[in-house]
Deep mutational scan, measured.
Amino acid sequence: MATVKFKYKGEEKEVDISKIKKVWRVGKMISFTWDEGGGKTGRGAVSEKDAPKELLQMLEKQ
């Protein structure tokens, strides 16, 4: 499965696309949330040019 790689608060992170729940556009950035388990929700953002095609497809479906 595809993953999204991004930096959050200076830390490199990687999230499996299948865990992503919500995707939206903020200017030229793609923001998203995912389920971290245990009732926690993670947040992240990646530039439109660095976003994997699967993430962009999720954005178009909404």
Results as ranks from 00 to 15, higher is better:
I30N: 00
K9R: 07
V4K: 00
F6T: 03
I17N: 01
A2C: 14
K9Y: 09
K61T: 11
K53R: 04
A2I: 12
V23F: 08
F32Y: 00
F6W: 03
V15P: 00
G39L: 15
S18H: 09
V46M: 11
D35I: 11
K5T: 03
K13F: 08
E14Y: 04
K53W: 14
P52E: 03
E60Q: 13
D16M: 11
S18K: 09
L59I: 06
W24H: 03
K53F: 12
K53Y: 12
E36V: 14
G39P: 13
M1F: 13
Q62S: 12
K49R: 07
V26D: 06
K13W: 05
D35R: 09
G38T: 12
S18Q: 09
K40W: 11
G42E: 11
G10S: 03
K40C: 15
T33S: 14
V23S: 04
M1P: 05
G42W: 15
Q57A: 09
L56Y: 13
L56G: 05
E11R: 11
V4L: 03
K9T: 01
R25A: 09
Q57V: 12
I20V: 06
G37S: 08
E36L: 07
F32D: 00
T41D: 14
G44D: 01
M1G: 11
D50H: 12
E14M: 03
K13I: 15
I17Y: 01
A51I: 07
G10W: 01
G27C: 15
V26K: 10
D35A: 09
Q57R: 07
W34M: 02
G39V: 11
T3M: 08
K21S: 10
E12F: 09
V4C: 01
E54D: 05
E54S: 07
K21Q: 15
K40Q: 15
F6S: 02
P52V: 05
K61Y: 13
E12Y: 11
D35P: 12
A2D: 06
G42C: 15
A2R: 08
G42N: 07
G27Y: 14
V26M: 10
W24T: 02
W24C: 13
Q62T: 10
K40Y: 15
I17K: 02
E36K: 10
G39D: 12
G42K: 09
Q62P: 13
R25L: 08
E11A: 05
E36P: 05
I20T: 02
G38V: 08
E48N: 08
K21N: 12
V23Q: 02
K40E: 12
E60W: 03
G27D: 15
E11V: 13
I20P: 00
G10K: 02
R25K: 10
E36D: 12
W34Y: 12
E11K: 11
V26G: 06
E11H: 07
P52D: 03
V15G: 01
E36H: 09
E12S: 07
K19N: 13
M29E: 09
R25F: 10
V46I: 10
K21H: 14
L59E: 11
G42P: 11
E48I: 05
G44K: 02
K61N: 10
E14C: 05
E36Q: 08
M1Q: 15
E11L: 08
G39Q: 12
Y8T: 03
K21G: 15
L59P: 02
L55Y: 00
Q62I: 10
E48P: 10
I30H: 01
T33E: 09
T41G: 14
K5P: 01
G10E: 02
K7S: 05
M29K: 06
Q62N: 10
T33D: 06
M58H: 05
K40S: 11
I20F: 08
A45D: 15
F32W: 01
K53D: 07
S47N: 09
T41V: 10
V46K: 02
M1L: 15
W34I: 02
K7D: 04
A2S: 06
V15N: 00
K49M: 11
L56W: 12
M58F: 04
E11G: 13
S31W: 07
L56D: 03
G42S: 08
F32C: 04
G27F: 06
S31F: 11
D50T: 08
K28P: 08
S18C: 13
K9S: 03
V23P: 02
V15D: 00
V15R: 01
E54H: 06
I20M: 13
F32M: 03
E54W: 07
M29F: 11
F6I: 04
G42V: 07
P52K: 02
I20H: 00
F32H: 00
A51E: 01
D35G: 04
G42D: 13
E48T: 04
W34P: 00
I30G: 00
E60P: 10
M29W: 15
A45F: 10
V15L: 04
K9A: 04
V23C: 10
K7H: 07
K21R: 14
F6C: 04
G44T: 07
K22L: 13
D50G: 07
G10N: 04
K7W: 09
A51V: 06
K28E: 07
I30W: 03
V15T: 03
K40A: 13
G39C: 15
L56M: 15
K5A: 02
R43S: 09
G42M: 12
D16P: 12
R25T: 08
G27Q: 14
Y8G: 01
G27I: 05
F6A: 02
K49V: 11
K21W: 15
